[in-house]
């Protein structure tokens, strides 16, 4: 790998994402960029890095940078939670009407709340008398800024999003795509730390808190569950990531047997469990 090309790419990567890659990690660059190089028409990662330095193409650079990050955020991630939302929460709401409040509690760069908003646009006309409020929060200001702007690269926008939805809900913005105003304006964005008291946001019918708890230790997860429990209506649903559950961490929630991935309140004011030997 040409050191000059690698240094140039590493500098761009650091400037845009804060991620540092040095010569000792060239194996990482090699493995992460192999597919991007090929599908951009380059024989090798070396050729890709040379092109990024000598004949930069923003779309290729964005894809390369995205491939170097571990960001797994995509539209309609795992799909099942969105099917649950439609069938178990939104469609039954037709009977009683009123407002359904949803909290995307770790919204990252916005793909989850926008997916919820897109789903709502598709079903809203079947649900007269029902209103939807979407609150989206994240701890990272950088993520929230990107989420609010609703601008995604061509590489990002096709992850999880069928082309028909892209055409319906997005507009071209130079080489990127921007979420249409009506969708952006349907979401309330706020900075929030999951460990802070969320009481001011009111109570919700559904809380999405996916793929963030895995980064916390058990005591912190328990504290977050306490906070979420306080903000979830008694008949509400908590939605966790596909690889997350409440087992051994809290007794405030239990899985809904008929709908994997959905959690309901137990009504127990359980103390935080202690680790064995702690």
């Amino acid at each position: 790998m040409n050191p000059q090309d690698l240094t140039h790419f590493a500098t761009l990567l650091k400037a845009r994402t804060g991620i540092e890659v040095d010569a000792q990690k060239d194996y990482l660059v090699q493995s992460r960029l192999a597919t991007i190089a090929g599908t951009a028409g380059h024989e090798s990662v070396d050729d890709l890095l040379r092109a990024i330095r000598t004949a930069p193409d923003e779309r290729v650079l964005e894809a390369a940078i995205d491939a170097m990050t571990t960001n797994e955020t995509l539209f309609f991630r795992d799909q099942t939670p969105f099917d649950h939302l439609r069938k178990i929460v939104l469609e039954p709401a037709r009977r009683k009407g009123g407002t359904v409040r949803i909290w995307s509690a770790a919204c990252s760069t916005g793909q989850e709340p926008y997916s919820i908003a897109m789903l709502w646009e598709e079903v809203a006309h079947h649900l007269p008398g029902v209103r939807l409020e979407i609150m989206a929060t994240d701890y990272s200001n950088a993520c929230l800024t990107k989420a609010r702007a609703g601008i995604y690269s061509a590489f990002e926008v096709q992850r999880g999003l069928p082309v028909q939805k892209l055409m319906k809900h997005f507009e071209p913005d130079g080489p990127n795509w921007r979420v249409k105003d009506n969708l952006r304006q349907s979401i309330t964005w706020r900075r929030h730390n999951l460990l802070d008291n969320p009481a001011a946001m009111g109570r919700f019918d559904v809380i999405f808190c996916r793929n963030v708890l895995i980064y916390f230790d058990r005591a912190t997860r328990s504290k977050v569950f306490d906070n979420l429990n306080g903000q979830l209506k008694d008949d509400g649903y908590l939605i966790l990531g596909a690889s997350e559950n409440v087992m051994g961490v809290t007794e405030r929630f239990r899985g809904d047997a008929s709908s994997p991935g959905l959690y309901v309140k137990t009504g127990l004011a359980a103390p935080m469990p202690r680790a064995v030997g702690a």
Binding site: T35, I36, G38, T39, V60, L74, F155, Q158, R159, V163
Partner: peptide
């Protein structure tokens, strides 16, 4: 039936074929 922008990765290809 679907549309992929180059360059793309394996996850995108898998997703788009599924769609």
């Amino acid at each position: 039936n679907e549309y992929i922008f180059k360059p793309f990765d394996m996850d995108t290809l898998r997703d788009k074929l599924s769609m």
